[in-house]
Simulated scan of single mutants.
Amino acid sequence: MNIQTSAAPATTPLGGGRGDASDLVRGVSPVLAVPFTDTGDVDVAGFHRVVDYVLGTGVTSAMFPGFASEYYKLTEDERRELTGILLSRTAGRDDFAAIVAVQDHTTRMAVARAREVVDAGADLINLLAPHFLNPSRRSQIEHITAVLAAVAPTPVVLQYAPAETGSSLDAATVAGLVAAHPNLRLVKVESSPPGRLIAELAALDPPVTALEGYAGVQLPDAWRRGAVGTQPGCSFTEIYVEIWRRLSTGDEAGGEDLHRRLLPYISYWMLDTELIIAAEKQISFRRGLIASPYCRKPAHVLDAEELRRIEVFLTEFADLLPDLP
């Protein structure tokens, strides 16, 4: 189980102490998509382009693999190869944090994968608790605890995605985990709406840092309640960067206005996870970032109206979304 990269081990925190790689997970932190060929093979060269594109947008962190990466459709070898590509590009950088996700259902496998990617150079772990066949809350906490202990002091982002997993999480539980495992540094909140939990986490003593997910549907509200960043897909990263820039530099009205323009699109696409994956793939294809919008089956097939609306989207935001070579 080896990921081949030239990365340095991530067990040495960037800056030491609390000033480690988790401090780079601020603003927009995209989830990397995996391009496929028209026949469904992984487009390795295309993934290199995706990584280069994201690094070029000025963000300081990115995550792979996530739901937006179709991680559940990748083989073990594909997942390792693509993770290695990301880590080879971020090795040695003190201005960018590579977040590698661990979604294994079995605690033994999750611990092994987490250790493997930390040894390969991951700056942070993104941990999704087990959810298949509805494990007990106690089992989920034990799973989270085992991974936190296995990778300490590497920082961990705990992903809370109740719509996709059916799991439940509260601030008191998080507070207990943080007290026992201080390398739990962030919670990615994808409840709908996320704001209340984000505010409850921010009010803890000490406060727990939160990211907003779910394609940024509630981004301004999450920002007002204390979220330090958002973690959407990567096909139109520039729009999210501009929204966050406006919000964080005193132009709240401008950030709200740009988000209001984006909201009709992302709120529709987020009605189904496979729908937004297909839409983002189509946007990346139309921008020239990837060579094919193919999604591995089972997948959402965009109909004529959905494709038309993507063209409307690209026209409306053309000033922020240049064609990519």
Rank of each mutant, 00 (worst) to 15 (best):
W223G: 00
R261C: 07
A203Y: 05
L258C: 10
D221K: 11
N126W: 08
G195I: 00
G40Q: 08
V117S: 04
L275A: 09
S248R: 14
L314R: 01
L127T: 01
A202R: 15
D119E: 15
P153R: 10
L247T: 02
T173L: 13
S6L: 07
L184R: 02
L55S: 08
V157W: 02
I310Y: 00
L258M: 11
H300P: 07
T83G: 05
F67N: 01
E81Y: 02
M270P: 00
T37S: 15
S235P: 04
F96L: 14
L321Q: 06
D221P: 00
R224T: 14
G40F: 08
Y265W: 13
Y240I: 06
L86Y: 02
E212G: 11
G121Q: 04
L289G: 04
T75V: 10
E212M: 08
G58Q: 12
R261M: 08
D77C: 01
A33I: 10
T37I: 14
E280M: 05
E78N: 11
L169N: 02
V178C: 07
P325S: 13
S284W: 02
A8R: 14
E252D: 11
I243F: 06
Q4M: 05
D221G: 13
T37P: 12
R196P: 00
P293M: 09
A278T: 03
E190Q: 15
I3F: 05
Y53W: 12
P155Q: 10
V34I: 14
F47I: 12
K281C: 02
T57Q: 15
E306M: 02
G19H: 11
P193G: 13
G213A: 10
L307V: 07
P194V: 11
I125N: 02
A304L: 13
E242N: 12
P130K: 07
L124E: 03
A112S: 14
A304C: 07
L321H: 03
C234Y: 03
A152G: 01
P193F: 11
E280W: 00
L271C: 10
V28D: 00
A199R: 15
